[in-house]
């Protein structure tokens, strides 16, 4: 069954689908959980940190809460208020990659929330900041929850079973669609301006086919099966150097982890004195 990400306003418009319901207003999100379609809501998405989320504590049922931190100066320190919400609902923090987003990642992870990076346009400075967050993900001794997309990509390398960024970033149109605030159905929030074609569920396969047929960078890229053209969907001229470096770091880390684990197993099998 498809999942639609809809504003609370359009909650009743999509029947026979699972729903991610979003709003800037926590009270509206709580109200949506009393709606006739509430049993189809799989996640609620809080898109503002300005208001106290206390109302979520009185929600009629437990549902995953995705807190989206969308812009610099978004009062990200208010994420602390969700530590109490987390006693009732599983909480994840989705962080748009903007200058300074690393502090949001750090605070959310410090509160033991899973984190998801949402990458839009990417320049060298932002790429450098992603690398800093990657280092934190790989080496912090206090991290207890995944930071996506790092975590799933790392596991993909570790198990030789890659998930594409489309899946990791929850943007695969075969599974999930986005309804804009104006009610327009689009591929995803990031790709709102991209024409989805007759059947959006085949969009990624078609894109991949086109990118490989171009016989350009993608056709030679060792990380294409991990990426699947995720960045070039929005911008065909996207420079992939920084992304490749991130993938390479994750690949090396997975290799190191595998090596360490193999050594551990060997030492455990060794006869003890």
């Amino acid at each position: 069954m498809l999942t639609y990400n809809v504003p609370t306003l359009f909650l009743d418009a999509y029947e026979d689908t699972k729903l991610i319901v979003r709003s800037d207003d926590v009270n509206r999100l709580v109200a949506s959980l009393s709606n006739a379609h509430a049993d189809r809501i799989v996640t609620i998405q809080a898109r503002s940190l300005a208001a106290d989320p206390e109302a979520l504590l009185k929600a009629p049922r437990t549902v995953p809460v995705d807190v989206v931190v969308g812009e610099p100066g978004a009062e990200y320190e208010n994420i602390y208020r969700y530590s109490e919400v987390a006693r009732k609902h599983p909480v994840r923090v989705s962080v748009r990659v903007f200058p300074g987003f690393g502090k949001v990642v750090k605070l959310a992870a410090s509160l033991n929330f899973p984190v998801k990076l949402e990458i839009g346009e990417l320049d060298r400075d932002l790429a450098a900041e992603i690398v800093e967050s990657l280092d934190y993900y790989l080496h912090s001794s206090t991290l207890g929850q995944p930071i996506e997309f790092f975590h799933s990509v790392l596991l993909g390398f570790y198990h030789n079973h890659p998930l594409t960024l489309w899946q990791v970033m929850e943007e695969d149109p075969a599974e999930l669609r986005f309804v804009t605030d104006e009610g327009k159905l689009v591929l995803s929030e990031r790709l709102a301006a991209v024409e989805p074609g007759a059947d959006p569920s085949t969009y990624i396969d078609e894109l991949r086919g086109e990118l490989l047929a171009e016989k350009g960078e993608c056709s030679l890229c060792r990380f294409f099966k991990n990426c699947g053209g995720y960045f070039r969907a929005a911008d065909r001229k996207f420079r992939c150097d920084d992304v490749k470096r991130i993938f390479q770091t994750l690949r090396n880390a997975a290799k190191e982890l595998k090596h360490d684990y193999a050594q551990l197993v060997t030492s455990e099998e060794r006869p003890r004195a």
């Binding site: 602390y80 208020r81 750090k106 033991n112």
Partner: peptide, 23 residues
Amino acid sequence: KERPIRLIQLGECIDCTYLSVCH
């Protein structure tokens, strides 16, 4: 309850390696 929020607003703690331990 909101003291940790104020500390971050004041620029304290966010750069500490052990934020998650101590707040």
